[in-house]
Design a binder for these strands. Structure first.
Lengths: 339, 339
DNA sequence: CTGAAAGCGCTTACAG
DNA sequence: CTGAAAGCGCTTACAG
């Protein structure tokens, strides 16, 4: 079932069929009708591989993120999948597992080689490296604070959001507020959230106590639970915890429970991400809604625009850092009653 | 950067380069070396679209599942992504949202059109419909009990697993055991789990009480919470709940908590799926580990084999229902102490 | 062991 | 408004 077959049945040339299929206006109404009938009758479907070979475009974008098992990224993937559908794009997902080499290599990733553009959710990539990637193919960085706007980037204002979380905890009467965040080589995005935490403490005239800052190995339930236990060991009088990710916060809830602490009576907990289960934990989790839908949709739209521009050979719009609004979601874990 | 360029640099024909790239043995060692050097030097990468057009294979498989936001499917997607990588396959994900028309139409899904084969996680599809899809392109049904083995199918023995859950609850002294499951048009897989519940009650000589069977709209946290509230209204003396999915169970935990019931003291809860957060809820959730890794890997391997067979023009192996082992994971929500 | 050539199905100037 | 023709980059018999 090829253009040739359709052309034969409709009694026209393949060029004409191609024009009809692409909705070009330069075809006589009567001809168009005949071709369309032939298309219907034969159930013609264009061969994508041929189209791609010819046009150099694949209509597929790559989504490179740490792992779909992290609730925050999974929800983001869902939003991207939906957004891409609206633009007629398919999505190829690849997991970097937070490995900076894989992040650097996304453009070489054999599974991502034929994609038109890449939506990258980096964890450890430097802005310069992202710029290098942008030179290879259209790239939009999502959900990560990649600095100075020299790369197309869509992100929540994580600094302000984290700061608002701390302000909220302070308003609920907490003074000894801890932070849980990935350790040593803190990913850029996590670091921004952490800096927001520091700023929030400063706003309230509170000190940053090193023993209240716990480094975690990853952003996972297990790490959160372990970090909570460690925190109680080194700073038992802590009365609130800000975890830079919901998975960490949900794990901390668990760790605190195991240690016999009552949340929020003994200790408040707040996270970041407003993942689906944050509303259904016990107690329900106070967190930041990062405007995920808007972020995913904006990033996909921009990427679609970039790939179109590139295909058309027109200059790409200059890189910019787009910021999406956030919302503080106050729930039981910080002492806000349900309902 | 094409075969031609490499051929020119190496001073051979494109056919020879192609042979080297494909590792065919019929090339003289000295020639192979020269070609490989040229490949390196030029950084040659094959054009996938051309390869696909020529070979008719894409090395991409489609994964069609209800939604990546459901924890159970998200964990499955993660396992499939990893399994596919081992076979050198990319994965294109499409969400059916449990819509049977989208399930029936997976082979026509414009985003899945060029894939070599499809891994389908159906919710409402009948076996006959799946057979019809199999005729279009290689298809493996995963994580769903699709009957009689006339379609390639990988599944947990959900019936036995659900039955084992009930046996466990009975062993923990529960007698008034409720079930939470999607309503009216119960998906095949959910129904199998439900039937396992019924069998489990029978094994213990317990009656199936209609007022203890609550139909949910979806498998989500929110549905689980709502169902738990409904259950308490219509059968307040219930002492255990078996939810056919972990999302439902985790939501029920929340609903019961809101209603002032203590789990497991007042009422035990068990789920199905052993999703990542099941170990980190409060209390930790008793559930069934469905052998996800084995299931995903088996399904992907089989699909890879089918696509290879089809490409080679050899007859596909006959359809079969593969069953994967499960494991009951006993945790606090059914009264098993932590640790 | 190596190469010339056909062709996968499409798009796109270009000519008419 | 329509068609003939070139060519995207590759693979694969086939001939030598």
């Amino acid at each position: 079932m090829t253009l040739r077959d359709v052309a034969a049945l409709a009694g026209v040339s393949v060029s004409t069929v191609s024009s009809v299929v692409h909705g070009r206006v330069c075809v006589r109404e009567e001809t168009r009708r005949r071709v369309q009938e032939a298309v219907e009758q034969l159930g013609y479907r264009p061969n994508l591989a041929a189209r791609r070979l010819r046009s150099g475009r694949s209509r597929v974008i790559g989504l490179a993120l740490p792992s779909v098992t992290v609730p925050y990224f999974r929800d983001l993937a869902d939003a991207v999948l939906r957004g891409a559908g609206d633009h007629g794009l398919s999505v190829l997902i690849t997991q970097t597992h937070g490995d900076v080499r894989r992040e650097r290599g996304v453009c070489d990733d054999p599974y991502l080689r034929h994609v038109d553009g890449i939506l990258l959710v980096p964890v450890a990539l430097a802005e310069e490296e992202a710029m290098a990637l942008s030179a290879v193919k259209p790239l939009v960085v999502a959900a990560s604070s990649l600095g100075a706007g020299r790369v197309h980037c869509f992100d929540t204002d994580s600094f302000a959001a984290a700061r608002a979380v701390v302000a909220h905890l302070v308003a609920r009467g907490r003074r000894r507020i801890a932070a849980l965040a990935p350790g040593e080589a803190r990913p850029a995005e996590s670091d921004v959230r952490y800096q927001g935490y520091v700023a929030g403490l400063r706003d309230a005239g509170l000190p940053v106590c090193p023993e209240r800052v716990v480094s975690t190995e990853r952003v996972s339930f297990a790490s959160g639970a372990a970090a909570a236990r460690a925190l109680l060991g080194q700073a038992p009088d802590t009365d609130a915890v800000f975890a830079i990710g919901d998975a960490l916060a949900l794990g901390a809830l668990r760790g605190l429970h195991e240690a016999g602490r009552v949340v929020p009576d003994d200790i408040a907990v707040a996270g970041f991400g407003n993942v689906a289960q944050a509303a259904f934990s016990t107690p329900a989790l106070t967190t930041v809604d990062p405007g995920r839908e808007e972020l995913a949709e904006g990033a996909v739209s921009l990427l679609a625009e970039l790939t179109r521009a590139r295909a058309a050979g027109v200059p790409l719009p200059p890189a910019r850092h787009h910021t999406v609004g956030f919302r503080l979601v106050e729930r039981e874990s910080s002492g806000v009653p349900a309902r």
